[in-house]
Design a protein around this nucleic acid. Structure first.
Lengths: 225, 225
DNA sequence: CAGTGGATATCGTGT
DNA sequence: ACACGATGTCCACTG
């Protein structure tokens, strides 16, 4: 990663044509070949940029300037930087990043639903989250008001896969005499029609989760179908 | 603008929950208060970030680490950076950026239409682009197949303003005996109904420009109303 | 209505 | 079905 602070002007010719007048800016050149030009505002969004794959050609310009031409390898788009003065220039080896782990909506929904398990219905009690089975953990195992065991599968977007997964869990759980009978609840922020049809056909209830509501603002906005 | 290269781990708690394991990264702190954490790839997109308005609190952590807590002033979202080692740290005054000037679609459309002026009709010939008048340049001045002068106003989105502008040009141009009579053509990627009505009422033809078609893929896809 | 800024969402693509 | 990357677009907000 190379960090350059320089007085530069920039011209972009590609999907549109754009120009940046001469001013001091950050030029961020990453190991993936990308180049982005940042001002001291606009949060993380650069003023202009070039995505990989691209190549940088550096050559002298007029009046002692230096011209960096960044060319996109496929589209031919160009970013032309005219450098008047370099105020800082440093390079750093960062290596490959382990990357972002999103505990994301699914995990968060699970946590919230476990905490507010009665949103599934009155008298519901949590048995445990991530209830282990031979084919993987069930997101939530709980009991309804009648004491019947309920297995809950949580997804951000409920699709057929999720229904199939829950079906497998239910089949397995229903072999356990201490749990049997086990009902299924398919919970997601958004449930695709096909998934809903399949779930209903298998006697699995569908619950649409309202994330904000679950976060505790208003618990009542959860709708049960 | 402060540039920090540091071994850090990051936890984000907000709209979702995310974690970044300890690794060397760029921490970009802008004058607007924003903080973004970049790996050496993914083009201009940071691994994680916090938008303004936010505040940064720096305090010692365990084992000699330093913990930077970035808190969003309104939502309370937090970005927690645990810094193990600082490899680079520099600050730079950039001042306010003059900002991006998008010559954008309009200039590009003008260029393309000038190049393919016959897309307005058979026998059309270009007089010149940016034809100067006392009240500003006319985007394109050309002649149709009959030798009649035609003034073209080009916009990305055709609104009433553009029609008014073209009307003023036409009024002026029609005073010139060497050009008179001058017809008007209002060309845009998208023309608002009101603008179209006004233009038609004034005897100005409307042309919807197909950007991709003009770019030379298929010249025929331009539609004349 | 025009101009600006922000998107951890959503979409599309590829596997 | 899923993961990843890109949005140079789109929308919502402001004045």
């Amino acid at each position: 990663m190379r960090l350059v602070i320089a007085r530069c002007s920039v011209d972009y010719v590609g999907r549109l044509t754009a120009h940046l007048p001469m001013a001091p800016r950050l030029i961020l050149m990453k190991a993936d070949g990308s180049v982005s030009i940042h001002a001291d505002d606009r949060a993380y969004k650069p003023l202009n940029w070039m995505n990989p794959p691209c190549t940088v050609r550096e050559k002298p310009g007029e009046d002692g300037t230096s011209v960096w031409t960044v060319t996109h390898s496929k589209s031919g788009e160009q970013l032309i930087l005219t450098i008047e003065e370099i105020l800082h220039d440093s390079s750093h080896e960062l290596g490959v990043d382990p990357g972002l782990r999103k505990d994301g909506v699914e995990a968060h929904l699970q946590e919230l639903l476990a905490k507010h398990i009665t949103t599934l219905g009155e008298g519901y009690t949590l048995i445990r989250r991530e209830y282990p089975t031979a084919i993987g953990p069930v997101d939530i195992l709980c009991r309804d008001g009648n004491g019947t065991t309920v297995a809950v599968e949580i997804k951000r977007r409920g699709e057929i896969d999720g229904v199939e997964q829950l079906t497998r869990y239910l089949e397995l759980l229903n072999r356990d005499p201490t749990l049997r009978p086990v009902r299924g609840v398919f919970a997601a922020q958004e449930i695709r029609p096909q998934a809903r049809v399949l779930a209903t056909d298998r006697g699995i209830a569908c619950v649409t989760l309202d994330y904000d509501a679950l976060r505790g603002i208003k618990k009542d906005e959860m709708t049960l179908f």
